[in-house]
Design a protein around this nucleic acid. Sequence first.
DNA 1: CTGGTTGCAAACAATTTGCAACCCA
DNA 2: TGGGTTGCAAATTGTTTGCAACCAG
Lengths: 154, 154
Amino acid sequence: MGKHRHDDHSHGHTDVPLDALKDKLRAGSRKITGPRQAILDVLRRESHPLTNREILQHLGHEECDLATIYRSMHLLGALGLVRKYDFGDGIARFELVRGDDETHHHHLICTACATVVEIDECFPTALEQTIAAQSGFSKLTHKLEFFGVCPKCQ
Amino acid sequence: MGKHRHDDHSHGHTDVPLDALKDKLRAGSRKITGPRQAILDVLRRESHPLTNREILQHLGHEECDLATIYRSMHLLGALGLVRKYDFGDGIARFELVRGDDETHHHHLICTACATVVEIDECFPTALEQTIAAQSGFSKLTHKLEFFGVCPKCQ
DNA sequence: CTGGTTGCAAACAATTTGCAACCCA
DNA sequence: TGGGTTGCAAATTGTTTGCAACCAG
């Protein structure tokens, strides 16, 4: 609806998601709707995890309903287009999965001003395998976030 | 109230908390009340993080109100007697801090049956310092939990 | 046309809070 | 006695869901 959108096929750089969306959605006989594209657009512009409410604010209440955002995030998450994060405040945050697959990374959040910094240091997968071996568990995953006080807030 | 309680001073083993509680509470001019001791007792018996609601069930609704448990957990957490965990389901869980200080550990949760296994493998503190150095952040902390499918559920 | 989607409002669930009665120190 | 505490109920807030109107394919 009344909002500019990347209908051009001139993919700037890491903008795979739009097409990935179409493919994956089609695979599940789901539809490519306005709200879904709008949400992806918001996520594509932001580099840090967003709250559902934040996504709503970026869109404007007229463009999409909060319930729709919740439902969309479930879907996008299941399709692997979006990843859910937990910053310890009990509010779900979502970030676009840029690379095709394992763009696995973590965040460093300032406990004072909530600034978020991306952490490239990936958690030692070796250790994860050790744990798997010792416990007998399979399909190991982990959630890891760092907290601290950023330079400005110290 | 009509419920047995450890009024005896025969500390079995790792039962520092009871005294630690008294000391720390006194330090803040707080009171050692029945509900607080009862909650600590429950936590002392359990080896895994408990939900506030689970704590309530262990106590019985007559012994302590849910709101009191929430308030107590805030207090106990601030005093460092209890540690809060996040298993990804948006429900806070609390575990007694056994050792005096850094009993820092993590958990491995089965995504099928919710079984919890304690993980001794502590996260490399060295890496945390590297992150601190690179980011300029101070007072680094981290939250880390593992997920997988336990042997029985595979 | 038609089944997946959306908006809106009601339903839920975890957590918080106001306030009068209550109790540890 | 008195200020910290508790119980109870109401209020908040994040998230889910029922349902009729809608729209992409």
